[in-house]
Design a protein around this nucleic acid. Structure first.
Lengths: 218, 218
DNA sequence: TGAAATTAGATTGTCGACAATCAGACAAAG
DNA sequence: CTTTGTCTGATTGTCGACAATCTAATTTCA
C-alpha cells in the first residue's frame, strides 16, 4: 500500500502485485511470466493482466516481443551506475527545488513518520522494510513537487535501479550507518531553511548511498 | 514509417497514428481523445486502441484518470528546459560513448542519408520534415548503442520535449543555420576518430539547438 | 542418420459484449 | 434563485471467446 494517489484501477493493483513478486525475489531477472498464470492466480481476466504487464513493461520491469514470452528485465550494473543513478540524482534535485518552498507541516510529519518506521525496521533488522522505506522517503520528496511528469519519469528510473540492486550484494556499510545517514538527511530537509542546503545534502546522500568510489570521476 | 525494429504489433501502429495526429497538430495540448472515436476511424477494436493509448500515456504524451477522459499532456517550458533537456543530453552522451566504438559502415551510411534528406528538406523549406529528420538523427545515435533500456528512456523524454516545442515558437536561427549545425555534427561523428571529440561536439550541438542562454548557468 | 516438414500445445493478439462509472441535463424542494 | 437529487447518454473498465503465432516434439524423406 505505497503512496499512490488516484491510481486504483484493477490494472494498477495487478501491476503492484507483480512488482511485489519481483521485488521480493519470487521472480528472478530473465524469468518468464505468462498472462494466464497471473490471471488465474489473482482471479481476474487476462485483459487486465495484459494492461498491467504493459504498464510494467513501459516502466522497465518487464520486456516482451510480439507473440514471444514476457520476461523480467535484465539491467547491467554499468547502466545503473553511469546512467540511471545520475539521472535519478538530477530528477530528485529538480523536484526538491520545486517542492521545498511549498512544503507544509503535513509533509514534514510524513518525513518524520518514515524515519520513525526506519528506526523500527532497524531494531528488528528488517532489511526489506528498510529498503521500502528508503524508497518511500525519496518518493515523498519527488511527489511533493506535484509535477506529474517528473513523478512518472522518476518512478520508471527508480524501478530499474531497484531491480538491479535486488540481485546484487548491497554496498558496504551496516544498517545503522544507513539509518544515521537518513536521520541527517531528514533533519536538514525538515529544519533547514535554504533550498541550497537541502539540495546539497540530498546530492551527497544519493551519491554516498549509491555510487562506489570508482565511478566518482566527474 | 520511422526506424522501428520489432515493434509492429497493432497497438504500436495505432500508437504511431495517434502520435502523428499529435505531432502534426491535429490534436492540441489538453485536447480530449476517446477510444471509440479512434477505434472507428482506424477500423480496429477498442481493446487495441486502449493498449495503444496506455503506451502513449506511459510515454508521456497522454494523461488519464480512471473513468475520466484521456487528454494530450501539457508540459511546462520550465520542466523542458531545466529537467528534460539536461536528461536528454546525459542519455545521448552515454549512448554515444557506448555506440561509437562499434559503429560500422552501414550506420555511417545512415547518417549520410539523413543528412542528404535534410538538405533536400531545406531546399523545399519543409520544416516539419526537417524536424522529423533531426529526431531520426539523434534516434540513430541512441539506437546504435543497442541498449534497450536506454532507447526507451530516451524516447519517452524526447516525446515530451517534442510535444512542448510543437506549441512554442521554435528558437531563433534560420533553417540554413540549422543545416550547417547538423553537417558539422555528422562530419565529426563519421570522420572523427576519438569518442571524446564526438561527445564534445554532440554536447555543444544539443545545448546550442535547445537551450536559451539564460539557462546556461551551471 | 540427420535435416526438413508437419503437427500439437501453449501463449499471445484481437475482438465484440456487457458492467461500472462519470458528466451534464433536468426536475423537485427549500 | 439556489441547491439537491435523479435520470440519461457517453465513456471507460472488465470479461470470455476466438484467431494468429510461436516452440518444440514428431514425423517424413533423402
Amino acid at each position: 500500500m505505497s503512496a499512490n494517489f488516484s491510481k486504483n484501477s484493477l490494472k494498477h493493483q495487478i501491476a503492484q502485485q507483480i512488482k511485489k513478486l519481483i521485488f521480493e525475489g519470487e521472480l528472478e531477472q530473465g524469468e518468464k511470466i505468462t498472462e494466464l498464470q497471473v490471471a488465474q492466480n489473482l482471479g481476474v481476466s487476462r485483459t487486465s493482466v495484459r494492461e498491467a504487464m504493459l504498464l510494467l513493461e513501459l516502466e522497465g520491469l518487464l520486456i516482451s516481443e510480439p507473440y514471444k514470452d514476457t520476461r523480467v528485465t535484465t539491467i547491467s550494473q554499468e547502466e545503473v551506475l553511469e546512467l540511471l543513478i545520475p539521472m535519478r540524482l538530477h530528477i530528485e534535485i529538480y523536484a526538491l527545488k520545486k517542492g521545498f518552498p511549498i512544503w507544509d507541516e503535513e509533509i514534514k510529519e510524513q518525513f518524520k513518520l518514515i524515519l520513525a518506521n526506519m528506526r523500527k525496521a532497524i531494531r528488528y533488522e528488517d532489511l526489506s522494510t528498510f529498503i521500502e522505506l528508503d524508497i518511500q522517503l525519496h518518493e515523498l520528496i519527488v511527489m511533493s513537487s506535484q509535477l506529474e511528469n517528473v513523478i512518472r519519469i522518476w518512478e520508471s528510473i527508480v524501478h530499474r535501479i531497484r531491480l538491479h540492486f535486488l540481485y546484487q550484494n548491497r554496498k558496504s556499510g551496516t544498517l545503522e550507518k544507513w539509518l544515521v545517514d537518513h536521520e541527517e538527511l531528514v533533519d536538514i530537509l525538515i529544519n533547514g531553511n535554504s533550498v541550497e542546503e537541502a539540495v546539497k545534502t540530498l546530492r551527497k546522500h544519493i551519491v554516498d548511498t549509491n555510487i562506489p568510489e570508482v565511478y566518482l570521476l566527474d
